[in-house]
Write a protein that binds this DNA or RNA. Structure first.
Lengths: 201, 201
DNA sequence: CGGCCAAGCGGAGGCGGCCTCCGCGGCCCC
DNA sequence: GGGGCCGCGGAGGCCGCCTCCGCTTGGCCG
């Protein structure tokens, strides 16, 4: 969980600066989702409640903003795994994490075009990195649920991630997220099947 | 060779209008090549020697212009096959056609980004159609050269096109077109090998 | 706790590209 | 050769990008 320097890198900055950066990232995700990837940067600054100058100081280009926003979403999603495990029964934690995953994929979809550009412009590891982090998050959720005996044993985190990623292919539409949630509900039921058998391998 | 209605569709238009359209298509190919796919449309209009209004009347969007320019390049390339056959020895016609193919691919490369958008926005047959036309052009060139006994017999047009398309993968650089030409030179030598054997299959 | 000062803010404004709109010119048909 | 209308062109409004600099405020030190 040691944050890489490409991510936070903000220990020496002023508190208000860090806050503004956060607000910009949140506003960016929000507006990319509702207004498309061509949303004016000025609209994002306004939504964040900061000046356009602050946006440009933090993120020199649209691509830089989108990349940072995406990395931030990945981080928030993965951090949520630990938080959920601390406050919920493992099975509920896993189910709710899947719910958050749907939100994450929705955000990623709305930024896919720009992220494409980012990767083409020389950041080939963007998705690879994200996948690794998410697999780790899934591993801790699964292990906790296995230990509690509420899901079957011997499930591979990578396989779960792959199945979850399938919601990417659900075609766009007003009911996109409902469909996605139903699909992950099926997966969750699959994981529950045969729970509690063969405790110590 | 009956032109489809998606291509010319300009029998009832005035002569100057048709001329302006041609000039715009030529200018677009030229400027996309030297100035990239974000070149201002005003620059294209200026290069064509027409007003910006004329550009927009003919091509409502950047994508429409790029698509029309691309289709036009394909048509010009394929038409060149017949012209060359009428004025040159078949072997020379084929060799020179390959030279023009390099120019065509260079143009296509410079528009690849926009064409990607066009296809994504619902014109999936764009490349398929082009490939079919080019294969037909190659067939007539090959058949003439076979009949003259200057290249081997039994070569498939589709195979030749596939090999030729390989120049797409040559990485960008100042010597791109020289490399591409050398590659097609190799292909040409391969076609010459064993010429004149087994005349009547 | 108060004062200092630089890190950080913000938004006006210049720039440039997009696209429309309409008065005029010249092409085509008779 | 004349008239009608098709098509031309580019001025101009709009909008988004990005910079630049005077002001604000957080954080530290005495």
């Amino acid at each position: 969980m040691a944050s890489t320097e490409t991510e936070a890198a903000a220990p020496a900055r002023r508190a208000d600066a860090r806050r503004n950066r956060e607000k910009l990232l949140a506003a960016a995700v929000e507006l990319f989702a509702v207004a498309g990837q061509d949303v004016p940067l000025e609209a994002i600054a306004e939504r964040a409640g900061v000046g356009i100058g602050t946006l440009y100081r933090n993120f020199p280009t649209r691509e830089a903003l989108a990349e940072a926003a995406y990395r931030n979403e990945v981080r928030r999603l993965c951090d949520a795994a630990d938080e959920l495990l601390a406050r919920r029964a493992p099975e509920d934690a896993l189910a709710e994490w899947m719910d958050r995953f749907v939100t994450y994929v929705a955000a990623k979809r709305s930024m896919a075009g720009i992220l494409q550009t980012v990767i083409a412009a020389g950041d080939p590891g963007l998705y690879t990195d994200a996948r690794g982090r998410m697999a780790a998050a899934i591993r801790s959720l699964i292990e906790a649920a296995e230990a509690a005996g509420t899901i079957r044993r011997g499930v591979e985190p990578d396989d779960v991630l792959r199945v979850m990623s399938g919601i990417w292919l659900v075609s766009d539409g007003p009911d996109w997220s409902e469909r996605a949630r139903r699909m992950l509900g099926l997966l969750m039921d699959g994981l529950r099947y045969g729970a509690g058998e063969g405790r110590a391998a």
